[in-house]
Design a protein around this nucleic acid. Structure first.
Lengths: 219, 219
DNA sequence: TCCATTATGGACTGTGGCGTCCATAACCAT
DNA sequence: ATGGTTATGGACGCCACAGTCCATAATGGA
């Protein structure tokens, strides 16, 4: 039940899978994404993939495990995408950051169905009662924040962002803005205002040489 | 069925309600808030209130209508709370804004159960497929944004915030940051980092007399 | 006291979903 | 061909839930 294929078989050889695991995961992912965890039924996945329930449960264990697996790959993919967009030489780090913020806002604004990000959706729906989801979402956000901070440090080294600013704090703020844009988008805010939020955020980033850095940090 | 009490009765007088409608709404609100819309059953509400299903349906119509009614009052309450905190004389407008941001972050950070805001939770769970919820959440955010913008304009008049900044855009950004902090909180980010996001955001507000206003807005 | 009207609460129905079970099928070394 | 092993797929059991129904209760006017 654990190993799908029986190597080192003592006497017999098992029947092989007839379906493409990745394809099934894609279909299931689509369902979870558009209809949420509670709104997606295993029967619907079975129907959409043409699989029988037995195969589904045999291959993935159950609804929760299936979702977790999809959630995992989504988290990795999205963090990888951020890394692809932001990691690079110091020269251009600032431009990459701006482009990333704009692209994120544009993507959310263009998402007519308000599906949003599966990470956010899954966290909002399940995180409260599902520690597995909480752990994964927090780790992913942590990774994204780290990448953002790294890019910000690069921009600081290159002289585009104020050296006095705390890169980690700034990164967390940028992350909050990105998640906030997503939340506003899901709440139905118009596309152009979402994009304007991105522009405003960019315009407030502490450019090098100017004042208003991180000084009177409350606490 | 519409009017609960029969005034101008033609022949008879109806039996009066035996329960406190507000109390039932409070209990139901608690359930929806902690367990979500899909996760809350009418049976659970009936059990928690001691009511029979007949009374519940007779008084509120159904699950969706009940939720909408709770959602409505929550939206009004939260927007009223923002108004209470932010509306006031120009002198102090900036301080009120900072206090509000800090208070929001602190509140989210202190929310051990990560219940978050019913507005955000409802929107995230239902907005995509429920136009009633979409409309209400968008209107509420709109109202909050307007209040924020008004306060920002007051702070500009008083000379605390840069007059050159677009108050509406700044207000939307602040709103995005607030919603973003909430999203990060629900995703499991630590309390002190959430509060540091608030401080960073405050420190980046365009203070009067300093540069870095809304100038090279992309596009 | 009787009546019209509405509230009450629990039984009941219909639907849908998760997970299991099992007869059958495909596989390959012997 | 046989046999041990795993895949397949659909029927099935079980449970939870939204909403309805109805016998009964409470109320004040006639």
């Amino acid at each position: 039940m654990d190993r799908p294929v029986n190597y080192g078989y003592p006497g017999g050889v098992a029947r092989p899978r007839e379906f493409d695991e990745e394809a099934v995961l894609d279909v299931a992912s689509e369902q979870f994404w558009t209809k949420g965890y509670a709104g997606t039924s295993m029967d619907a996945i079975a129907a959409a993939t043409g699989l029988g329930k037995g195969s589904l449960y045999g291959a993935f264990g159950g609804k929760h495990q299936l979702f977790l697996r999809i959630f995992d790959t989504y988290c990795v993919r999205i963090a990888d995408a951020v890394a692809d967009g932001l990691i690079g030489p110091d020269d251009g780090a600032y431009a990459r950051l701006c482009a990333h913020i704009r692209a994120a806002a544009a993507g959310i604004a263009a998402d007519q169905l308000h599906r949003g990000c599966l990470l956010a959706k899954g966290a909002a729906e399940l995180s409260e009662h599902d520690p597995d989801v909480t752990v994964r979402s927090r780790r992913t956000l942590e990774r994204i924040a780290t990448i953002l901070a790294e890019d910000i440090r690069a921009a600081q080294r290159h002289g585009d962002l104020d050296q006095a600013a705390d890169a980690d704090q700034l990164a967390t703020l940028v992350l909050a803005v990105l998640r906030g844009i997503e939340a506003l988008g899901k709440a139905g805010m118009e596309a152009d205002r979402l994009e304007s939020v991105a522009e405003t955020a960019i315009s407030l980033l502490p450019r090098a040489g100017k004042a208003s850095g991180t000084d009177s940090g409350g606490r």
